[in-house]
Amino acid sequence: MIKCEHVSLSFQDKRVFDDLNFEIESGANASVSGESGKGKSSILKLLQGYILPDTGTISINGAKLSARSINQIRNSIAWIPQNINLPVHTGIKLMHLLGISERKESVYSFLDKLGLEEELLHADFQKISGGQKQRIVISICLSLDREIILMDEPTSSLDDASIQLLINAFKTLSNKTILSASHNHAWIKNSNQVIEL
């Protein structure tokens, strides 16, 4: 369960949000929606301890977010950022950096669900489309099998057909708590909880 109580956040005197409260039950698929600059991505960074709130508390699976609990909390999260332009050349290299075995079956299974051939793991990211790269990164991160999945604009580089594949793939995930920041209507519609900023 993800719990956010009376959280306020500001950057250099500019208030991003004030007294934010929400609760996401374990196993829920939630989306944060709102216009650009409303703080959607900031919520995801708050949950990982990369930005700290001015006031309020954040708890994940009962552990209050603090310097002491941060490693335990991060160990329960798979993080799929918006900026897929990670300075890594191939999916395989990314798997090495994450300490994932090249033979990990679940990576291939997610690639298949997202309509990709496993050979693409060896393809140079510069030579494939943004959508293919995004689906490769998502497949690799999902294979980590973490309890909580945080995603920033997971559909930003995807066409409608690929978005549908992604929605279908996420429906097969069981017992995962998902929180994504998104602008995409089809993706948000598929969520069972929407946090409006």
Binding site: Q48, W79, L98, G99, L144
Partner: peptide, 22 residues
């Protein structure tokens, strides 16, 4: 210059040693 990758690795490995290894 590659702080996005560091934070990506820090969460997804859950381990600062692994995140800094490369």
């Amino acid at each position: 210059e590659k702080s996005d990758l560091y934070y990506f690795l820090l969460t997804n490995t859950g381990n600062s040693k692994l995140a800094l290894q490369s």
